[in-house]
Computed example of a mutant assay.
Amino acid sequence: MVLPEVSVTRRALLAGSAATAATLSVPALANPIERFPIWPGSPPGGEGLSVRDEVVKRSPNGPADDIAWPHVATPMLNVVPAPVPNGGAILYIPGGGYARVAVGREGSSIARAFAARGYTVFELLYRLPRDGWAAGPDVPLQDAQRAMRLIRAGAAKWRIDPARVAAMGFSAGGHLTARLASRSTLKTYEPVDAADAQPARPAVVGLFFPVITMTDPVAHAHSKRELLGGNATSDRIARFSAENGLPADMPPTLVAHAADDPVVSPANSLTMFAALQAARIPSELHIFEKGGHGLPLREAGKDHPWPGLFERFARNHGL
């Protein structure tokens, strides 16, 4: 059962959100968005908790669907359908500094842009460690793994190829995406149904202005505090630094960042790319001169290159 969403007064915008620059147009959708909970009952590890879904507006004068979730009791997927499906799919993981999840209910402009390119896009609303779930810092990973498995389990329904499922993450969602890619076989929960027999590894990965390391001084302090608490041990910091322990089967990974990002240092992307190269993982890095904490779909009246660069990279690796 989906718990009620509780509207609350606007809270200060938190550093580390995955806001992107304004876009000029949002492609129309041929079919309505489907939205559903990713767990058949209560999510794992919530015994004794009284978490309720809460929604805040990200800007007092912004569009109605420009919202974020400071508390998540019911992790969900939005299915943004492609007007002309090409068989590929993308799991879209938004950011929010692990203090909230910056995703609406109607399909983001980025999800719609990739749907217009033929990809069925699945936007993930994931749980947050701050709410006290038993898995702690691994609770977002539980939801990301479950989402990948559900996408593959429903491949026939959504007319996608289960071998052609990518993941793209933004800001703190980039950290979660990197961990999904490198820890896809880590057992974070007990199987709940047949979908959990599906693999959780993405075929290819895009990390955009990502939080990566938990090691100072590069770490994004807000994300680190929300994920690990205020007194994390060196072992815990190392475990949750996404550049560490990349497996030999780490998916091909594209990393992109703006050099003028005032929130998450571009050194995070440089750190991840260096680790990918050291592990001999097919990888690509783009550092744009400008963009702040977010890369726009359009800039100066023209399409920004990053979506095309990711699509090119992803297609070169099987998407």
Rank of each mutant, 00 (worst) to 15 (best):
G318T: 11
A163T: 06
G95C: 09
L254M: 15
F209T: 12
D249H: 04
A258H: 01
M250E: 13
G16F: 08
A73W: 14
P40K: 05
G46A: 02
V80A: 03
L3M: 12
A242N: 08
D193A: 10
L254D: 05
S182M: 04
G118T: 10
G104W: 11
F313E: 04
G88F: 01
V139C: 15
G96E: 11
W69D: 10
F313V: 07
E54G: 01
R127T: 03
K57P: 12
G294W: 00
S265F: 00
V192Y: 05
P266Y: 12
G118N: 07
A15L: 06
S7H: 02
S108L: 10
L270R: 14
V103H: 09
R159D: 13
E299M: 10
P85R: 00
A178K: 02
T9L: 14
I67N: 00
V121F: 08
H286T: 00
M1H: 14
P63A: 10
A194T: 14
A82T: 06
T74D: 15
D249Q: 09
A156P: 00
L176Y: 05
A232S: 08
A314G: 02
L176V: 05
P140S: 05
A274T: 14
T9H: 14
I90N: 04
E226M: 11
T233M: 03
T20Y: 11
P199Q: 12
N31E: 15
E54S: 07
P81Y: 04
L285N: 06
P247E: 09
S42Q: 15
